[in-house]
Amino acid sequence: MRSEHEINRAIELHANTVRRLCMIYLKNYADTEDIFQNVFLKYALNSVSFANLEHEKAWFIRVTINACKDLLKNFFHSHTVPLDLIMEQPIEIPPDYQDILEAVFSLPQKYRDVVYLHYFEDYTAPEISQILGKNVNTIYTLLTRSKRILREKLGGDKYEL
């Protein structure tokens, strides 16, 4: 079990990454809160030592994605409608970026995490393949297809990818 100090440090360092991944996968705040808390609880109870901060960050990404996928696969979750589903996530996005965000959210799920990791976290395809445990070529394919879909949705060459 980790110390309180270690947990607070990890929350300060990785909270935003976990939160963004939750936003990509989940559609309501209650689920986000559940996953967010469970990921950090797993970290608190875990005694794995990380080689460096990058290694630790990759662990958080991997655990968050798995937790989100598990939640979405859950029978109860997929067959019920949470009370706050209709409530917007409490994040304010400038109107200019609304169309891009909508385009990203409209991507099939398998593209969303790749897009986030590549365009925001600046991970390369081999790094993403390691984090997600997928083949590098699969990552390249997913990136290429997601670019094409986004381009189509956002109106051709208007947005350069």
């Binding site: 929350i11 939160r19 986000t32 409490p90 970026y97």
Partner: peptide
């Protein structure tokens, strides 16, 4: 769009309330 995507994701920050609840939850657990 690369820049815009970064901007969008940068807007997403873990709320202080969420962090606070998480700390409380972890302490309890």
């Amino acid at each position: 769009m690369n820049y815009k995507l970064k901007e969008i994701f940068n807007q997403v920050q873990a709320e202080e309330e969420l962090k606070k609840h998480t700390r409380e939850y972890i302490n309890l657990q």
